[in-house]
Structures are given as structure tokens and as C-alpha cells.
Simulated scan of single mutants.
Amino acid sequence: MDQIIRPLLKENRLHGDTMLPLGVYENQYMPGGKGFDCHWHEETEFLLVLEGEVLFQVDTEYFTVKAGEAVFIDGGDIHAALDVLGDTPCRMTAIVFDAGWLESGSFDAVQKDYISPLLERKKTFPRRILPASGWEKGLLIHLHTIIHAYHKKQPGFEIRIKALLMLMLGELSGEEGRACDRSEALHSDATRVDRLKTVIVYMHNHYHRAIRLRELADQIPMSEGQFNRFFKSMTRSTPIEYLNAYRIRKAGEYLSASDKKISAIAMDVGFDNLSYFIKVFRQTMRCTPSEFRKKHGLRPEQSG
């Protein structure tokens, strides 16, 4: 599925399958635009930037990631690619996997000293992995090798990928100071993230109808002005901008999967004015709903 119509926020998709709980996904985002919106999943993720530069968010941290660098995301962390920087597209590859897949069959030294601390966020990878030191360069090489092995799928690729992830844990534990302890995040930050999750989940459950700002603010609760400032500080967009962007992406799913009238789809995703829906759709997707449907292989809506 095209990257601009992927499901957002709490992902319920299965990455890989029960035999290989790992998926690799490639995406490209245009300069001057946004990457992907705030979301989270229970799985662990490495995100490798292959080209371009992007402003990234993980929970309450914001930082720039460039080509040749990677981001590590612990399971459950909210993350987003907020803005594509510079004049070139940003191309990135995500490796998403269930870290429990690495667990030992018994409580051995590997489980005690490496796997359990990773799962408990006591000895985990740095947020940004830069080619600034030998061990970090080693991690980046391993990520490229994992991506190559996943796409080639030659016999034995599963054990090769698992072995590479274990080697990365070995690199992390090679010297004192490499691993990060995020088991006790600042309480204030954890509270802010939980509040953000609460209100965006509410948006995703009720996007199909009119939602007032007061209704959203009551979910936390905050005053409307306080809530508006809080939401923008966390996502770099207003609540209405975020809600409309989510509605448009849901509309993209419907347009690509059915021949339902565009006016009906606009109503289904919470727009009661067709002209406004088309205006917001064009701003978000850089094309009209009809052009989007045509691009995705379905016939344009028939008039009459």
C-alpha cells in the first residue's frame, strides 16, 4: 500500500508472521512535506535513512536524522517523521520486529544480560545511531545486511537476520556507556505521552463525525486553549490539522478500495462539505480525490 495511506497511530497490523515476526518497509517522502504522522506499535523498530534529511520525533524528543543515520524506537514509543528538510526527497527503510523473538528458550546468560534488559528498556540502543564511531558503523552495516537478506530471502535468511540482531546486541554491550537506560522515563514526559495517546485514539475512533475542540480537550482534561497549545507542542500541528489529515488518509483508503461516490466518502470520513473536503484532500495528498483514485487503478467516479 502507498505510504500516504498507511494506518496511523496505534498499529494493529502483524509485522511478518508468527514464524518470522519481522517486517521491512520502504518509504519515500517529498521535500517540503511531512513524513508519517504520530503512531506507535508494540514492536521494536530500527529506521534507516537512505537519502535526504527529516525532523524526527520519539515521544517528547525531537532531532534531525540524515542519510546514513538510523533511529531506534522502543516498543510502545510514539514516533513521527515530522518534516522533510532540504530540497531532496527523504527515503527510509523501517525494520519492525517483535523483540520477544530474540528470547532464549531458558534463562541463560544471553537472556539475563542482553535480552531481558532490552525488553525492560534498561540496556537499549541510543535513539540516534550515527556513523561517528566504529561500533555504531557496525550497527549500520548490520542494518543494511538485514534489509538485503530480507529482500533476497535466500535459504537460511531467517537465522541470518536473527543472528545479526543478536550481534547488534553484542556490539551494544561491548563497552560501558553504549547502552541507554530508558526504564524510568521522566514522569512528566510519560504523562504527556499518555495524554497524547488518549486524545488521538479518541480522534481515530470518532473521525467519521463532527468533533469539537471542547470534546477533545475534555478527554485529558484541559481547557481548550491549554489543550490546543499542548497538542501543537507534541505534534507540531493543531488538533484540527491532525484530525483532518487522518480523515484524508482514511479517505485515501476508501478511494483506493471501492468505487463509492466521492461525496459519500467525504461524509464517511467526517466532512459535510464536499468542496472543503476536496480542498483539504488536495492540500494533503497534492492531488484531487478523482486523480488519487485514477492513480490507484480504479475508474474515476461517473457523473450523473
Rank of each mutant, 00 (worst) to 15 (best):
R6N: 13
N12T: 08
D17I: 02
N27C: 11
N27P: 12
Q28L: 14
F36R: 01
C38R: 00
W40M: 07
H41F: 05
L48W: 03
G52V: 01
G52Q: 03
Q57E: 15
T60S: 10
Y62Q: 14
V71G: 04
G75S: 02
I78S: 04
A81H: 01
P89A: 05
F97I: 00
A99I: 04
G105A: 04
D108K: 02
A109D: 15
V110S: 11
Q111P: 13
S116V: 15
L118H: 02
P126L: 04
A132N: 13
S133I: 00
W135Q: 06
G138T: 04
H142E: 11
L143G: 00
T145A: 13
I146K: 02
H151C: 10
K152R: 15
M168R: 04
G170R: 09
L172I: 08
E176R: 09
H187F: 13
A190Q: 07
R192E: 11
V193C: 02
V193R: 01
R195L: 12
H204K: 09
H206F: 10
I211V: 13
R214S: 15
P221R: 13
E224M: 15
E241W: 11
L243I: 06
N244E: 12
A245D: 09
R249H: 06
R249T: 07
A264P: 07
V269H: 05
V280H: 06
T284H: 15
C287W: 08
K294A: 10
R299N: 11
Q302P: 07
S303K: 13
